[in-house]
């Protein structure tokens, strides 16, 4: 197995997580935001894997399987929502989607 220091191993998921966070912050297209969320979930799974391999416990890998199932369900519902929103408003820009906002404050 590899002999990389633990801090360096944990650096990879933290960088991936921060890139995903940056993606959620800077993008206005909903699909890209969902993609960035997937990146963040994946980074969290990577931390679980590192922990499970360091402690030689299978529990971390079980957690990653649950994360995978959750991500699959979330993507299915999220993409269906995006399709519906696109049919209603003809846009995927999050700034345009303000149906729930009060009429007076809409700018």
């Amino acid at each position: 197995m590899i002999s990389v220091p633990v801090s360096v191993q944990l650096l990879l998921p933290s960088v991936l997580f921060l890139i995903g966070l940056l993606g959620v912050l800077i993008r206005r297209n909903v699909i890209f935001m969902l993609m960035a969320m997937e990146i963040m979930l994946n980074a969290a799974g990577l931390v679980f894997i590192i922990g499970s391999s360091l402690w030689k416990q299978a529990d971390g890998q079980v957690m990653v399987i649950f994360i995978l199932a959750m991500a699959a369900a979330e993507v299915a519902v999220g993409l269906a929502l995006i399709l519906q929103v696109f049919q209603m408003h003809k846009t995927v820009d999050v700034d345009q989607l303000q149906e729930l906002k009060d009429e007076r404050e809409r700018g």
């Binding site: 590899i2 191993q9 360091l54 030689k56 416990q57 299978a58 529990d59 079980v62």
Partner: peptide, 15 residues
Amino acid sequence: GGNQSIMPQQVGEAL
């Protein structure tokens, strides 16, 4: 001991 591999058997057993 560093990183050690965990085989699918163990994962399935825990799961």
